[in-house]
Design a binder for these strands. Structure first.
Lengths: 162, 162
DNA sequence: ATAAAAATGAAAATCAAATTCATTTAAAAT
DNA sequence: ATTTTAAATGAATTTGATTTTCATTTTTAT
């Protein structure tokens, strides 16, 4: 259904697979943010740049990093996440209640999120028309665009079929 | 600048002034949600449906309602906000850090938000094209749309001129 | 190597939001 | 109108996420 849409109105664009960074690149990120390179920070970035789940909470990250640094605590994680957010290197996604998720920005640009209110699954999508429209709105107002968030909350099909 | 855009690409549509509800209408809202009518609840809804600030935090609401009900506490506020959210009567807006803001839904449909990262000012805007696109995306996937959030984070002009 | 500046981690503090429970209130049924 | 009953209230506590503090350790530039 809804196939063969006129050009420019296709809504669903798949996200290319995540770009993984090697250790050297992760260190570059820290440098670019004016942060000193520590093993803990590299470990946190490694978690953010890999793994099966795209969107990780501070707790996810802590648990993962603890495997190699059993003494690391939330303080270190949150401090780094905040600095990286401020430097626009990561994206904080706070979808309603609960804890925020974080994702490392890659070359791939603005993508958006669909979240199932039932099972919590998050799907990414891109849409050039929305992106352009939002840029235009900001430009018209003579503001400076810092970030754009588009989130659709749904009940997904696997949830509906239960 | 950027005037005379082709039809369908205008980005900035002003929001009509907020619809105020009278006491009877507010009670209707509670009934529709299957909630008993209490003076505290009517007072909370009255705050949500009026006043100079469109987006109110639980704290804003508490302080306002306390003027007439000095003993009311957060428990009552949060409980009601949660029930109203679940009944889709209000919109919870959690923009990054800090507490969520809540706004009463009116007949006027999906509108979006521009927030200044500096001064925290929030501006509403509407955009039919984005709205339709998001609906289309959900339809294509055979999901059920529950809510859509579009947020632009900027530095606004009054902030830039400082 | 060494000094200066920054980062770490354990613990405590803060803040938003949810919960508990004894008491009160609204609304349905007499 | 009164009684009944189920739900709502509010004070206090709890939970959970995030931030801060501070003594100690590590990084980086010299």
């Amino acid at each position: 259904m809804l196939k063969n849409l006129p050009i420019g109105t296709q809504t669903d664009v798949l996200i290319e697979p995540r770009t993984f960074f090697n250790e050297k690149e992760l260190k570059e990120i820290l440098k670019k943010c004016g942060l000193k390179i520590t093993k803990q920070r590299v470990a946190v970035l490694k978690v953010l740049s890999s793994g099966p789940r795209y969107h990780k909470t501070a707790k996810d990250i802590l648990e993962e990093v603890k495997k190699n640094f059993p003494n690391i605590g939330f303080a270190t994680i949150y401090r780094l996440l905040k600095r990286l957010s401020q430097a626009q290197m990561i994206l904080e996604i706070s979808m309603g209640a609960g804890s925020s998720c974080y994702e490392l920005k890659t070359k791939q640009q603005s993508h958006y999120h669909i979240a199932c209110l039932n099972c919590g699954k998050i799907i990414e999508f891109k849409n050039k028309m929305i992106e352009t429209t939002l840029e235009k709105i900001v430009l018209e107002k003579n503001y400076t665009l810092k970030n754009q968030v588009v989130e659709i909350y749904v009940n997904c099909d696997s949830c509906k079929n239960q």
